[in-house]
Design a protein around this nucleic acid. Structure first.
Length: 102
DNA sequence: GTAATGACAAGAC
DNA sequence: TGTCTTGCCATTA
């Protein structure tokens, strides 16, 4: 227990993250919209930073709108590559082909 | 109550 | 995609 965010937010966000199909990535904005909070993209990031504490969630499939990975999660790239997600650049995912298509 | 912070988004160039 | 600016929102001090 490091920082208690709204349990509602955490549950909703992690619930969506858990639905991201393997080999795909979703943007914070996408998730924010799915939880009915289109402007809470930043909150999503905060919750995700603690996601590992609340449970086992594929937070590595969540990237920002530019396809960049989390600054505190360097291993994220490796995990994505292992799932088939390609990187156009060392720091950017190929969003065009691997963004979660709903 | 106010200010600062953050794994961001969207628009403009 | 990259960088800069503005906007949003919840948490923390």
């Amino acid at each position: 227990m490091v920082a208690k965010l709204s349990k509602d937010l955490i549950y909703e966000i992690l619930s969506v993250v858990d639905e991201i199909p393997k080999g795909k990535v979703a943007s914070y904005g996408q998730i924010a919209k799915l939880i009915d909070r289109p402007k809470n993209a930043r909150l999503v990031g905060k919750v995700l930073s603690q996601a590992s504490y609340y449970g086992d969630y594929p937070c590595h499939r969540v990237v920002n709108h530019a396809g960049r990975l989390a600054p505190t999660f360097p291993n994220q790239k490796d995990l994505l590559l292992d799932e088939g997600v390609e990187f156009k650049k060392p720091t950017h995912v190929d969003m065009k082909n691997f963004q979660w298509d709903m």
